[in-house]
Design a protein around this nucleic acid. Sequence first.
DNA 1: CGTTAGGTTGAGCAATATCAAATTCGGTGG
DNA 2: CCACCGAATTTGATATTGCTCAACCTAACG
Lengths: 268, 268
Amino acid sequence: MGTGVEKVMLTTSRNGAAPLADLLVNRFNRLEVLTEHERGVLRLIEARPKQAWRADTRLLTERSEIRAPQFVMTGWAARVRELGDSRRQILGILLPGDVIGLAMRARPLALTHVVALTPMRTVEAPEIAVAWRDRERVPGLAAAFDLAATEDEFFMMAQVMRLGRQTAYERIAHWFMELEYRLSSRGLSTNGSFPLPVTQETLADAVGLSVVHVNRTLQQMRREGRIELTRGRLSLLDPDALRAAGEFHPPALSAPGQLAAEARVVHH
Amino acid sequence: MGTGVEKVMLTTSRNGAAPLADLLVNRFNRLEVLTEHERGVLRLIEARPKQAWRADTRLLTERSEIRAPQFVMTGWAARVRELGDSRRQILGILLPGDVIGLAMRARPLALTHVVALTPMRTVEAPEIAVAWRDRERVPGLAAAFDLAATEDEFFMMAQVMRLGRQTAYERIAHWFMELEYRLSSRGLSTNGSFPLPVTQETLADAVGLSVVHVNRTLQQMRREGRIELTRGRLSLLDPDALRAAGEFHPPALSAPGQLAAEARVVHH
DNA sequence: CGTTAGGTTGAGCAATATCAAATTCGGTGG
DNA sequence: CCACCGAATTTGATATTGCTCAACCTAACG
C-alpha cells in the first residue's frame, strides 16, 4: 500500500465553497482575538491550491522527515502507530482545521504515521512555523496556534485516560462526545449530529477494542436510545447520558483573562 | 490528603552534592550543544534553593493556575487524571531533570494533577518560559527544551499505544524499558539497574491494570529470569527479551544534522 | 512485639477477544 | 430496474485475559 501517485495537485479548488469557506478564520478567531491582518493571513492560506489525497493514503510516515506543516481543509485523517503484528492504535483524529506535521525543531521526524481516513484536501501552511518563531509579528495567531496545540495535548491525555481506565461503553461515549465537541467548535456539527465517515474497525483502533465488541457496544447504545448511527452519520440522541457515562469534560486550558477571546463559545 | 504545609522552603540545599550535581547541564547538553553561557544559566538554576515535597503531596492540580515552571531535581512524580469513582490513570512519570508545569500560553491551567510519588526537591525555572519567548538569546537552550518537550510528547504517545493495544506483559516490559532509557540518559541507571521507588499499585495505575494482575505479571517476569525487583530497585536481567516483548523503540525526533549534538548517547 | 502498608496467592467471575458464519449495504455493470 | 459483488456490519459460540474479592504473608517501623 502507498505506492504511486497519492498526492494530486489541483489547479483550481472549485468546490471550496460552502462549509469550507473561512474554516480557519472561524476556528482560530474563536481561540484568540485576531487582528484584521492576522485574519488576512489565514484567508490567504485557505485560498491556496489544495493537495488532494485519496482515502487510505499516508500523508506522513513515522520517523521520516517532515516538511512544511499543513492544515486539513476537508476530510478526516488519523495519527497511527503500529505494532509488529497487525495491531494498530489510533492516537488521535485529525479534523478540518487541524494542523498536520507541526514540529518546533530542526530536521523534525514524524512521531506517528498520518493516514487519510477519507478523501482529503490539505494546504501547506509554513506560516504556522513562522508565527511560532516570530511571535511578535502576529501575536494573536501565535497565541491561537499555541492554544490549538495545547488542545491537542489535552485530547491525547484524554485518550490515555480512556484506554487505561474506562470500559468499552465509557470509551465510546467519551470518544463521541469529544468528536462532537471538536466538530461543533468548527461549525461541523449541528444539534449533536455530524458525519462519522469511518468504519467500525477504525473506531475500534481508536478506542482500543475489537471490532466485534465495538459493534456490540454500539448496538447497546442504540437500544438505549442514546445514539442513531446510519450511513456515516452519527446523532447523539441523549448527549447528557453519554457525557455522564464517559465523564467527558471539555478542555479548560486558560483562566479567563481580559485579553483573551472570551467570546469563546460555551458548549452545552 | 493534601492539606496543610506540603511545600517546605529549604534555606540551604546541603545534600545537592553527588548525583544531583550538574543534572540539568548533563541532560540538556546531551540534547543540544550549549554555549558556556547557556550552561551557566542551567547551573544557576541548579544552585537555586530547593522546594521540598513529601511523598503523596500534590504539586499541581488539574484546572488550577500554573505559576513558574519547575525542574525536578530529586525524587519521582506522576501526572495523574482521575475518574469520578476511585479509578485513576497515570499519564506519565516525572523524573529528575524533567520539567513540571511548562505552558506556552497566558494564564495557563494545569492539564493534569502532578503528585509526588516520593519525597522530592524541585527548583523554579522561569528561564524555561523566557528561553521559549526569546529564543534568540539562548538558542541552544531553546532548542534543547523543544527536544525535551517533544520527547515528552513521544512518551505520551507510547503510553497510548501501550494502553490501547498491548497485553499486560508487554505493557510492563515496555514501561520498564522506557524508564531505563530515560534514567540512563540522565546517568541514573547503571547496567539496566535502577531505583524503582513506587508501589505495585502505582505501577498498576501507570500501565492501566489491576494491582493483582501487575503482581502476577511481575512474578512471571521473575520466574523467566528477566527481572529482579527487590526493595525498590529494579534490575533488567534480560533487556533484549523485554525490549522485544514490549516492542520498545527509543524516540527518533530529529534527523542527524551538522549542528545538533550528535555526541548524542546511543543506548544499548 | 504489635501494627500496618505493601506484597502474594487462590478462586471465581466479568469483560472483552477470537473465530466463524450470516446478513446488509452501497455501489456497479448489465 | 435488477443482479451481483465486495466491504462492512451483525450475530452466535467459545476462549482468554484480566478483574474482584478475600485471605494470608512479610518486612519495616515505632
